[in-house]
Design a protein around this nucleic acid. Sequence first.
DNA 1: TGAAATACTGTATATATTTACAGTTATACG
DNA 2: CGTATAACTGTAAATATATACAGTATTTCA
Lengths: 216, 216
Amino acid sequence: MNSTDKTQNKLTSRQREILNFISEFIDKYKFPPTRSEVSAHFGFRSPNAAESHLRALQKKAVIGIERGVSRGITLLPMAMTELPGNKNPPLPLVGRVAAGSPVLAQENIEDEYRVDPGLFPQKPHYLLRVEGMSMRDAGILDGDLLAVHRTPEARNGQIVVARLDDEVTVKRFRQEGSQVQLLPENPDFDPIDIDLRQQELAIEGLGVGIIRPALL
Amino acid sequence: MNSTDKTQNKLTSRQREILNFISEFIDKYKFPPTRSEVSAHFGFRSPNAAESHLRALQKKAVIGIERGVSRGITLLPMAMTELPGNKNPPLPLVGRVAAGSPVLAQENIEDEYRVDPGLFPQKPHYLLRVEGMSMRDAGILDGDLLAVHRTPEARNGQIVVARLDDEVTVKRFRQEGSQVQLLPENPDFDPIDIDLRQQELAIEGLGVGIIRPALL
DNA sequence: TGAAATACTGTATATATTTACAGTTATACG
DNA sequence: CGTATAACTGTAAATATATACAGTATTTCA
């Protein structure tokens, strides 16, 4: 391991706690904490304890420290990845899913959009651009963005993102024992029948909402 | 004027400049400026010049100052109103529009949601909850949220929010001279014909997108 | 017209804050 | 086993920062 690689070092649990505190402090007070505020929170008797932690976090490229500046701590983009409970991250927009690749593979992500999570009944994890008119009568049109909640479980009647033979499709879900039907909402299309004993079917997620970025 | 009313006092142009600087400073550095940083920016030779301005802004309830805390300045919600170039404000969700009231009247606003403006081809100004199925075949269903761009001008074929006899409706727009048609997208509904010489029609805005907060 | 508010200069000081230096203990690593 | 890193205590000092006090000139407003 050479001395220049800083980013790949993972945080220790204590460091994660410190980072967490900084993030929450900023959320609460709208400005970063001082060394003594960090120390006070964790019960350190020396401000230097906080100082060393900050230096470590800086070395690992999750925070920035402005020298000689009070409260000069900034959370770097890198920090967002490490933070839990990061409400309202931008949702990746998934376009055409390349055969065999995971839906959220980098190559499938076209863009990122911030969308208020409170809009939807279930937290969406990504947006999937819908192709084709097979769900027209459910009001889901070609080009619509389906807000998808990642989960492998679906109940009858729900609109799912399913993967069948390396193809990703959006359909209404129906299951009776080992027989699954993927139902289109357009009489021009035929239902897809699957026998789980003979064919593999993966539920990628649940459709929880629609965003139509343009009206015709 | 008694001494307790603080909020209604408007800001002087200088105070607005100061507030602006603070806001931009926070955007840039992620923490608020000190008195000397404010002074340096405006060329004050005394940190007290900044101090007085901050006190004035505090008295007018646009900023908060934590006593004894470095960089302890916070922008209060009130400040947002005063600030220009406030990109990405939350969009008000307009529910049922009370007869005779402006669409964006306080009484019509149910909630507020942050939505990435980059999603839509035109900047949406508010979200309108669609009632009824008259636009079903355009994929706009009962309960959908229509993202509306406020403008009084519409071109043929666009989906508009129109006000006719104190009623607000969403329809497709068509105009030939003084004859306007508001076309539903559902054979169960009849087009509305308006002669502008006899009846008043106000275009409240253009539908620029749809958000469906739940799938059935 | 006169008091209050605005918009500053200038000086001073308490204290908030960063930051360096010197240690201790425990754990991980090759 | 020795070295590095993590996770602290404890002390000290330079400096960054808030903030009080004393003024001046101008504008606002009742």
